[in-house]
Simulated scan of single mutants.
Amino acid sequence: MKFRPLHDRVLLRRVEQDEKTKGGIIIPDTAKEKPMEGEIVAVGSGLRDETGKVVPLDVKAGDRVLFSKWSGTEVTIDGEDLLVMKEADIMGVLAA
């Protein structure tokens, strides 16, 4: 893939949730919500501060993160549905 997000933006892939509940009930596609968990595919270089110095992002490619429900812009790159969003829309990194 030849895509690099600019500045404080990240490219991420949604991580699909289980299709069953803990009680064994199968959730149909029409009732599912889009997952708010994803894996970072690529990150931008960072924002510039007041002095012009580039401040790198706190996330890196491969991190699993939680993000705001309605954040990001859906894009299709190489036939894969991905999201581009600002780092500020990411709520946190999930521990491995």
Rank of each mutant, 00 (worst) to 15 (best):
W70D: 11
L82H: 02
L47H: 13
G46P: 13
S45H: 15
A95F: 03
I40C: 10
G44R: 13
L94P: 02
V59N: 09
S71G: 06
V54N: 13
V84W: 04
S68M: 07
V75P: 05
A61G: 12
R64F: 00
V65P: 08
L66C: 09
T73A: 05
V54H: 14
T51K: 12
D58S: 10
G44D: 13
G62T: 12
V59I: 09
D58W: 04
T76K: 06
R64V: 01
T51F: 09
T73C: 02
D49S: 09
V93H: 01
E39F: 08
D58V: 04
A42H: 14
G72P: 00
T76N: 06
K53A: 15
D58F: 07
R64H: 05
G52A: 10
K69H: 07
L94N: 03
G44Y: 12
S68V: 03
V75F: 04
A95Q: 09
I77R: 10
V54F: 12
K60W: 02
T76P: 01
S45Q: 14
L94Q: 02
E50Y: 07
K60S: 09
M85E: 07
M91K: 03
V65D: 11
V65E: 12
S71Q: 06
D63M: 02
G72Q: 01
R64L: 02
G52L: 12
T51D: 15
T51C: 10
V55F: 11
L83K: 10
W70N: 07
E50M: 10
L83D: 08
